[in-house]
Design a protein around this nucleic acid. Structure first.
Lengths: 140, 140
DNA sequence: TAACTACTTTATAATTATTCTAAAGTATGT
DNA sequence: ACATACTTTAGAATAATTATAAAGTAGTTA
């Protein structure tokens, strides 16, 4: 029998809908990711370090990778890549845009960018989403 | 003294302007990359394999990486990343857009997309470029 | 040309992010 | 409690990339 208060519900459901039993480790990861005010970006390594720092009993690397993957496959996380061969994950899964500023990533709300002209998808294909990256540099 | 006909000039100059002496290996790489009708995308591994396949004396991995890096730093190649922890390079350095279709990348000419609304750069920053990725999926 | 210096290439080792594996642990259903 | 299936973990394996250091090559100077 599970104790399930409304506070836990959201992030535990994300595990369930990812096909993952809500074990202790997974619940803590999901809570860390989703039980907060603002969405954020992270790498698996960063996630592991920041979570394990405070823990006496560390969660293993493989569990972080497995959990993040399952959450991503179920659509609870969005993956993106910078130019450093590392996968980044975004807890904001709504389609949105980004500023890239020397490896730093800043979200741009979807409604801040609109298009005048967009190409058609090649035949047999359709557009899944459209995302814009605005690369920044220092003013001078 | 160098023999230098007009056919070689462009890609040898790209080496020179990247701070690289035009050695045999580098000239062959630069020729392979730039002496062709259409621009294309590649990974270093792909480049190495396709070039070395035809050669009896193989060019080393390190030389491919060094040369591609220098060309990229000088702005003769553009780097981008998919979600598989590999760097891709594009011989088309003009700002342009892409369709991403399950790991396949198709160029979209810059003038095919125009914006109605774009956000301002954060203060102290300015916009270097704006690039769009249109993700595709099969029609049904 | 010979000698000197600086730059290159190469094989190989090291590193980093990620995935795989297999054993030990835990949970669930009967 | 037993059996089965799912989890966690440490550590090995893999893949892309970068670093290292020795041997090779080119360019310069005398």
């Amino acid at each position: 029998m599970h104790k399930m208060n409304s506070k836990n519900k959201t992030f535990i459901d994300k595990l369930r809908s990812s096909g993952l039993r809500p074990t202790n480790q997974r619940v803590e990861i999901s809570k860390f990711l989703f039980n907060r005010k603002k969405t954020f970006h992270f790498t698996v390594e960063e996630l592991k370090n920041s979570m394990n720092l405070k823990r006496s009993k560390k969660i293993s690397t493989a569990t972080f990778y497995n959990t993040v993957h399952a959450l991503k496959s179920a659509g609870h996380l969005k993956e993106f890549s910078l130019e450093n061969n590392t996968s980044y994950y975004d807890t904001n899964i709504k389609s949105h845009h980004h500023f890239f500023d020397n490896g730093k990533v800043i979200d741009i709300r979807s409604d801040k960018i609109t298009f005048q002209k967009l190409p058609d998808a090649p035949k047999g294909k359709k557009i899944k989403n459209v995302e814009v990256v605005i690369r920044l540099e220092n003013n001078n």
